[in-house]
Simulated scan of single mutants.
Amino acid sequence: MKNSFIRYSLAIVLAACATGAMAQQLKTTQLSAGMHLIQAEVAVTDDQREVGLMYREKMPANAGMLFVFGAPATQCMWMKNTPLPLSVAFIDAAGKIVNIEDMQPHTLDSHCSTKGVPVRYALEMNLGWFRQKNIKPGITIGNLPPLR
């Protein structure tokens, strides 16, 4: 019984550490979408993009996560271990939104940019944010970080 309790306690501590590591401190930037300002965490490395918004329970109304990709390509997002319902805008190198997809929590469905249109960024916001602000494909996102 004592060993079971110790193993259980250790598992809880390890899970908490892993979750804390997942909520890594990322650089932030202020983006613009028309007259709307967005405070976005920026995921640039493979590890940062892989973790994304996993394990996040909530996100402020005008906050999001910007994924920066190393090369122009079709990109896909998923919601593994992500409890927040999100919308994602796929954005080309010039900052123009190519398409927007809604994503449900804890799913492994792929949500991809329009095939044949290479993107360099993806911006995840709370579900419906783009629709509520009347932000559609073709609109440009301003103040994106420079590409490498």
Rank of each mutant, 00 (worst) to 15 (best):
M35E: 15
Y55F: 15
L37N: 15
T140N: 12
T107F: 03
K115A: 13
A40E: 09
V44Y: 09
L37F: 15
P118N: 03
E101Q: 14
A33N: 12
V119Y: 04
T19D: 05
I97R: 03
I6P: 03
Q24Y: 08
L14Q: 08
L86S: 02
M77K: 06
A11D: 03
L123E: 03
A23C: 04
L108F: 11
S113M: 01
M125I: 00
A63D: 15
M79K: 00
F90W: 10
M54D: 09
P72R: 02
P85E: 07
D47V: 09
K133V: 00
P137A: 10
V117A: 04
Q75T: 03
I91P: 05
N81K: 11
L66A: 11
N81H: 14
S4H: 09
A21M: 09
A93L: 00
V117Y: 04
A33P: 13
T29P: 08
L123M: 04
L144Y: 06
V42F: 14
Y121H: 05
P146H: 11
M22E: 07
L37E: 15
S113K: 01
R120L: 13
H36M: 09
M103C: 00
S110N: 14
I12N: 08
T140R: 15
L147C: 08
L66H: 13
M65Q: 06
R7M: 11
I38L: 10
F130G: 01
L66Y: 13
T19H: 08
N81Q: 11
V117C: 02
T114F: 01
C112K: 03
G70F: 02
I97Y: 03
P146S: 14
R7Y: 13
L127A: 06
A43H: 12
C17I: 10
L26S: 04
E50T: 12
P83S: 06
T74Y: 00
A43C: 05
L108K: 11
W78V: 02
G52I: 10
C76N: 10
L53Y: 08
N62P: 07
L14G: 08
Q104T: 12
P85I: 02
E124D: 06
N143Y: 09
T107K: 10
P145Y: 05
L53E: 10
S113P: 10
L53Q: 07
Y8N: 08
M79N: 02
M103I: 00
N99I: 02
M1L: 06
T74L: 04
Q75S: 03
K58Q: 13
L14A: 12
T82G: 05
E50Q: 15
T107I: 07
T114L: 14
A16N: 06
R49C: 08
V42M: 14
